[in-house]
């Protein structure tokens, strides 16, 4: 994932998708919410990224939700989610350590 504040990266590569990461429940907050990501990356790739970023224990799990409604399959690609559920040029994702809207 690339830093959106670094304009050179986002402007050079328009094909990337902007995602907004929101913490929910008792999970640590990632200060920088906006990220850009390769459209073909999967949900499980994002989960792993958050897991590593928050330095969680190996036995802790990250759950991801789209627009606080459903949990996408781990092998779903970001492009599909963005095409169908993106709003205002962004895909809004919620992450937590327990099932929330499961």
């Amino acid at each position: 994932m690339a830093d959106t504040e670094d304009n050179s990266i986002t402007e050079k590569d328009n094909s990337k998708i902007c995602i907004l990461l929101n913490a929910t429940g008792n999970v640590p907050i990632i200060k920088k919410r906006k990220w850009t990501v390769d459209p073909n990356k999967t949900v499980s790739w994002i989960q792993k990224f958050i897991h590593q970023y928050l330095k969680l224990d190996a036995n802790e799990q990250i759950f991801l939700y789209v627009n606080q409604t459903f949990a996408p399959a781990p092998d779903q690609i970001i492009k599909n989610l963005y095409e169908c559920h993106g709003t205002n040029g962004k895909l809004v994702l919620y992450y937590c350590k327990n099932q929330a809207w499961g």
């Binding site: 789209v66 409604t69 949990a71 399959a73």
Partner: peptide, 18 residues
């Protein structure tokens, strides 16, 4: 089962805003 229910939810978001 939880994956199946997620599919139903996503489909309903598309059909009836959930």
């Amino acid at each position: 089962e939880s994956y199946f229910m997620s599919c139903l939810k996503e489909a309903d978001v598309l059909k009836h805003r959930g």
